[in-house]
Nucleic acid binder design. Structure first.
Length: 319
DNA sequence: GATCCGTGGTA
DNA sequence: TTACCAAGGAT
């Protein structure tokens, strides 16, 4: 959960998740919808699919016990170099240094490494691996790893690091050279493009809402959302948008209820939301890939934040 | 190696 | 408002 996600955001999800799935076996036996429902809103949904798959491998092939080596952990779904090292150090006391964003920042500053990311990543990892060569650190891999995270999170922060409070201030080449705060250097990112979408909020007299399941892989993979055409680079005219609306007889009276702006990692999305209410959903809904769900029972469903914004907007405007 | 993948907080 | 950032991984 903590991959690219702040501790503050994770804590409530962690509490609920471990309550729902106390053991690896419980998680392995759960169905995908339950897992996605517990993850919804946290983002990066491939992590939920990988974690579920990981639990199934551990439960089925390993008797419910995780491997206790970096190599064994690294082979599991969703566990990469960082997470394998973190589990090996923290759970199994292996003398390895997990390299996350904090450790990259601390390392580049400590050794005044000015080569920009991401090119410098291998060299940074090689330097970081030697951070616990000190016997005192080497004997306590778990504490050392977490101390590094906390040093990065609390002292050696991205902006305005508190160098005066740093236990490594005398050893820090970056501080000595006066460049610590500027590290690590990064190659400039490409500008974030804007894309445009249309989604339809269709309800019936009995309080049902039309949803559809997104493809398993790709953006918001495996989550539920409002139906609509593929997002694209150009805005949608009303006439063009309504050509993609879900059918109904008599035809739904669509109203444009507003727009939702949502920022993804690599593009900004602007969604026009249309809403309508009909007497009863046609029997062909399921054939067309749709599913109808009660409006007042969406809480536990695997619905991404973007789609919740759209649903909230439409629901507020239909009162 | 570059791209794709969410969301919320903060300066 | 904008830009950056967060206990990264898969393809």
């Amino acid at each position: 959960m903590l991959q690219q996600t702040t501790v503050t955001a994770v804590i409530p999800y962690f509490e609920r998740f471990t309550q729902l799935f106390p053991t690896v076996g419980d998680l392995a036996r759960a169905d995908a919808d339950t897992v996605m429902g517990a993850w919804a809103g946290l983002g990066y949904y491939a992590r939920a699919r990988n974690l579920h798959a990981c639990a199934q491998v551990v439960a089925r092939d390993m008797g419910g016990h995780f491997p206790d080596t970096v190599e064994g952990l690294r082979a599991l779904p969703g566990i990469g170099p960082y997470t394998a090292a973190a589990i090996a150090a923290i759970a199994f006391g292996r003398p390895v240094v997990p390299v996350d964003g904090n450790v990259e920042r601390v390392t580049t500053r400590l050794f005044a490494m000015t080569d920009p990311l991401p090119r410098a990543r291998p060299a940074i990892a090689r330097q970081a691996a030697h951070l616990n060569d000190d016997p005192l650190a080497h004997d306590r891999p778990s504490d050392f790893a977490q101390a590094l995270f906390d040093l990065g999170a609390g002292i050696c922060t991205p902006r305005t690091p508190a160098c005066a409070l740093c236990p490594w201030r005398d050893a820090c080449a970056g501080l000595r050279k006066g460049i610590a705060a500027s590290l690590p250097h990064k190659t400039p990112k490409a500008p974030r493009p804007t894309r445009y979408g249309v989604h339809f909020h269709l309800t019936d007299a009995s309080g049902g809402l039309l949803l559809h399941r997104r493809a398993e892989s790709g953006l918001l993979g495996g989550t539920l959302g409002l139906p609509g055409p593929q997002w694209r680079a150009e805005r949608w005219s009303t006439e063009e948008a309504l050509r993609h609306a879900p059918p109904g007889r008599p035809a739904p009276q669509w109203r444009h209820v507003g727009e939702v702006r949502h920022v993804f990692t690599h593009f900004t999305l602007i969604v026009d939301v249309y809403a309508a209410r009909i007497a009863r959903f046609p029997n062909t809904i399921a054939r067309d890939g749709g599913l109808v769900h009660p409006c007042d029972g969406l809480g536990q469903m695997g619905i991404a934040s973007l789609m919740r914004k759209c649903i909230t907007l439409a629901a507020a405007s239909t009162e």
